[in-house]
Structures are given as structure tokens and as C-alpha cells.
Amino acid sequence: MAPAPKKSLSDLASLGGLVYSTESGRMCPDCRQPIGQCACKELAKAAVPAGDGIVRVSRETKGRGGKAVTLVKGVLVDAAALDQLGKQLKAACGCGGTVKDGVIEVQGDHVERVMAALQKLGHKVKRAGG
């Protein structure tokens, strides 16, 4: 049996780099700074999705056991503001929901209520789908 080849430093760096340092604690794998000084998450939060400025509201039942869900896509705000908008829409409809991948999902068929609430907040809204 042949001996295992030695790993070079360049091979170890490709594994992701330093994760923990006794000097400064946990390290960010992306910018390799201590977690307290990491700027990666702030940059990700500041990123606003690109689009045409029109919010599209649709109703979908696929993959949900026949249950209807109202989807809100194309809102040009950051993640924190999107979560807040999701809360406002859920409260306006009196139901539950979530925010996933930049899309607000409101449980139930509330397309008209959601469109009215978004127009009241000053968004340009279109109904998408059937």
C-alpha cells in the first residue's frame, strides 16, 4: 500500500481557511475576519434585488395539497423591510404566511386584499397569473 500524499498549503486553503482562532474567536469563512468585525452580512443585507418596479401578486396551489396561497413578487426593498411588509400584509388579511427567497407568501386566496394594501402603501401593483 502506497503512503498517503502530503497535503500542500494551497490544498488546505481550498478547504475554506481558518474557522476559529484562539486569539479572536470565530472567523467568517468569506472575508476571514473575526465575526464581530465581519462586513459580509451587512453587504448582503444592503443588496436590493433588481426589477422593473412593479409588484406582482398571484394565487398558487401547486405543491400545497390544493391549498391556495397568495404570492407577492418583485418588491424592491431589502430583506428587513420585506419581512416587515410581510407582517403588514398578513395582518391586513388576518392569516399566516412567510417570506422565502424574496417572495411573500400569504396563506389563502387574498389577492384583492393584498393588492389594495400594497397600493395604499404606494407600490405599483399588477395581478399576475389567471
Score class of each variant (00 low, 15 high):
A50M: 07
K87V: 10
R64P: 01
R64H: 09
C95L: 06
A13H: 05
V114Y: 02
L12R: 12
A79Y: 12
A92Y: 10
G53V: 07
R56L: 09
L43G: 12
K45D: 04
C93F: 08
G51Y: 12
A68N: 05
G17I: 08
R32G: 02
T22E: 07
V48P: 07
H123C: 00
V103G: 04
I35E: 13
A91H: 08
R26K: 12
P29T: 09
P49H: 00
C31I: 03
G130S: 08
Q33P: 01
G63H: 08
C40I: 06
L76K: 15
D30Y: 09
V111K: 04
Q107W: 12
K90N: 10
A128L: 06
G17T: 02
S58V: 03
A80E: 15
L9F: 10
V48E: 03
E60F: 03
G25V: 04
R56Q: 11
Q37G: 07
S8L: 14
C95S: 14
C40L: 10
R59I: 03
I54C: 08
A91N: 15
E42V: 08
S8P: 03
V72W: 01
A68K: 05
G129P: 11
S14G: 08
T22A: 08
L121C: 05
E105K: 13
S21L: 02
V111G: 02
G63I: 03
Q107D: 08
A92C: 03
R56E: 15
Q84L: 10
G17N: 03
I54W: 10
R32D: 10
E112K: 11
K62W: 06
A2N: 14
G65E: 02
P49E: 11
E42A: 15
V48A: 04
A68I: 15
P5R: 10
M27T: 15
D83W: 05
G122Y: 05
L89P: 07
L18H: 03
G97R: 00
Q107K: 07
A80T: 08
Q84G: 02
L12C: 12
V99W: 01
V72E: 06
K120W: 05
G53S: 07
M115H: 11
S8Y: 00
S24E: 12
K7S: 14
S8Q: 15
D101H: 14
K87E: 12
A2D: 13
A13P: 02
K45R: 14
L121D: 06
L43P: 05
D78H: 04
R59P: 00
L89E: 08
L118Y: 07
E105C: 09
C93M: 11
P49R: 12
V55F: 09
G63V: 09
T70K: 09
E60Q: 03
C95T: 12
M115R: 11
I104A: 14
E23W: 09
K90G: 14
